[in-house]
């Protein structure tokens, strides 16, 4: 199966060409965030303050890694359930976020925002956390260190294997894929 190599940050043209089911190898800088960090970021936006990370063209990975063993860049780092970030995601997408990585279905609101503002959602393989950590070449905390594994990290990734689940056309691989293989 062919895989598309992509590098962050994303231009609108790159995002517009992605389609559900495509396999991607992602390289470049991405940011991590779980619900606690999203909540804090949206609070900053409410107060009219600046975010600790850039958003335009960027990708957020929903992950809370296990602690790094000595001499390692990061611990095991597979995706967490994206639904918990659904209440916050449309706000970030409207501000220019172009990609999200996680596992599990997104809400209709997030899917609508992806269509309207041109963004995509990728699935990483849930539970393949030791394998994924090999694609992560650098890691540093950029905000909320007090949140531990839930802090916002800046990651440099190389050929991180992903699958496009939601595209700018409103497609949803969770729905489509299941339909194809469901016995009638």
């Amino acid at each position: 199966m062919s895989q598309i190599k992509l590098t962050t940050p994303f231009s609108e043209a790159v995002v517009e060409n992605l389609r559900i089911g495509q396999r991607v190898l992602l390289s470049g800088t991405i940011y991590t965030g779980r619900d606690a960090a999203h909540k804090k970021m949206v609070e900053l936006l409410d107060q009219g303050k600046e975010l600790p990370i850039p958003l335009v063209g960027q990708v957020i990975y929903y992950v809370g890694p296990s602690p790094a063993k000595p001499g390692r860049v990061i611990g095991s780092a597979g995706p967490t359930t994206s639904g918990r970030m659904d209440p916050y995601a449309p706000r970030l997408i409207a501000l220019g976020l172009k990609g999200m990585i996680g596992k599990g279905k997104r809400s209709p609101e997030v899917i609508k925002a992806m269509k309207q503002y041109k963004a995509v959602y990728f699935a990483a393989v849930g539970g393949a956390a030791a394998l994924i950590s090999r694609s992560i070449k650098a890691c540093r905390v950029v905000a909320y260190p007090e949140l531990g594994p839930e802090a916002v990290h800046e990651l440099v990734v190389e050929d991180f294997p992903l699958i496009v689940v939601n595209d700018v056309l409103g497609g949803d691989l969770y729905e489509e894929g299941t339909k194809i293989y469901a016995a009638r």
């Binding site: 199966m1 095991s76 030791a130 394998l131 294997p161």
Partner: peptide, 27 residues
């Protein structure tokens, strides 16, 4: 095909976890 590839990744993941004594999943 995507499904097969995912299952392969899970096997590879388990192998890495066992060999390197790291958790197979971050959770």
């Amino acid at each position: 095909l995507t499904g097969r590839d995912i299952l392969q990744q899970l096997l590879k993941n388990a192998e890495i976890a066992r060999e390197e004594s790291v958790p197979m999943c971050q959770d």
